[in-house]
């Protein structure tokens, strides 16, 4: 399969910090890739970098390459980038409550994309917008077209956002924590909708989340980020079955609801000691200050990401020297 997106040596720097120093990954056509990590791991920044919507004071590193359908868009001039945004690559955001313009009808907000990228007339765009709202299962779409965002619930607003995003048939849809702000029951519906649209429209989906349950259920492949570094990459079954990086292991151990036979009241909740802030200025592995098995060498250089077979990559020399630990019974 061809890669829709091939990111190489992506680095994002602010005047005082470099939250993403060097990140490479690919997304295949029609694939769902999950980017997981805690707050501050650089996952949202990465998403914004792909859309080239980083804050003004952030800079992409010189060596960063973002190959979108084989074309490097890392340094693409803004006018050309605008032709890609919303048409070939689209994005939905975490806060459906504030991501829609409060003074514009939802119909206009969907139709706007169609007029811009598909060159539809106002009338045709309106008709197509109705179909799109129908597609994302807004009940009575033709009647709701002239309603304003405040008249919609959070879940419905996220559906509208999805309609805006898929309006021009993008090849890549980036969903930045699309369900974090929603009720658990709505979360499943939205993810199911995204997954179905991904299949029907043959888009690739970059799913950014910190919810391991979401990853386990919906992703084809998972990348665990820690402080902007890829620490582990695998299919979900492998990652949850035999997590190899101490961070991923800690993350899974701290997620009681992934284990079917376990209830959070059965015993004390487990946490990873320390905080991601300790990664700031760390020369070697950013996780070393919190790592239970760290060695002196971990603190001098970032361990390379090494293949473990079967598409499993791990950036930890300590745990991968031994047999990968077993015994995590994950209810997948």
């Amino acid at each position: 399969m061809a890669a829709v997106l091939d990111v190489r040596h992506l680095s994002i720097a602010f005047p005082r910090a470099t939250p993403v120093p060097d990140l490479s990954f690919t997304i295949e056509e029609g694939e769902t890739l999950a980017l997981v990590g805690e707050s501050g791991s650089g996952k949202s920044l990465t998403a914004l970098a792909l859309m080239r919507l980083l804050p003004r004071n952030a800079r992409l590193g010189e060596a960063s390459r973002i190959l979108f359908s084989g074309r490097n868009i890392a340094q693409l001039p803004e006018p050309e980038m605008r032709r890609l945004r919303g048409r070939d690559m689209a994005m939905i955001f975490q806060e459906p409550m504030t991501s829609l313009n409060p003074v514009m009808t939802v119909g206009r907000q969907v139709a706007e994309v169609l007029e811009l990228h598909e060159g539809l007339s106002r009338r045709a765009a309106r008709k197509r917008a109705t179909e799109l709202l129908d597609l994302v299962r807004i009940p009575e779409a033709h009647r709701r077209l002239d309603a304003y965002p405040h008249q919609f619930s959070g879940g419905q607003r996220q559906r509208v956002m999805i309609a805006v995003a898929i309006a021009a048939h993008p090849r890549l849809l980036i969903a930045d924590e699309p369900t974090t702000a929603l009720d658990v029951t709505i979360q499943a519906q939205i993810l199911e909708l995204l997954d179905q649209l991904r299949r029907d429209l043959s888009m690739a989906l970059l799913l950014i989340t910190h919810d391991l349950g979401v990853v386990a259920q919906w992703a084809d492949r998972v990348i665990a980020l820690y402080a902007g570094h890829k620490v582990e990459e695998a299919r979900p079954q492998l990652l949850f079955g035999t997590p190899a990086h101490p961070y991923t292991q800690g993350l899974l151990a701290a997620s009681p609801r992934l284990r079917a036979d376990y209830h959070y009241s059965d015993g004390p909740l487990i946490e990873i000691p320390g905080s991601i802030v300790s990664a700031v200025g760390e020369k070697g592995c950013p996780f070393a200050p919190r790592c239970p098995v760290a060695r002196a060498t971990c603190r001098t250089a970032m361990p390379p990401l090494l293949p473990q077979g079967d598409g499993h990559f791990v950036a930890c020399p300590v745990t991968t020297l031994r047999e990968a630990p077993h015994g995590h019974s994950v209810g997948l």
Binding site: M51, L53, R82, R83, L84, R85, G86, R87, A90, M91, F93, E95, T98, S99, L100, N101, P102, E112, V113, L116, H117, M161, V164
Partner: peptide
């Protein structure tokens, strides 16, 4: 600085 402006930019608007 509001979210919907980011949405508008993500649509590819000038």
């Amino acid at each position: 600085s509001q979210d919907f402006i980011r949405t508008a930019r993500a649509k590819g608007l000038s």
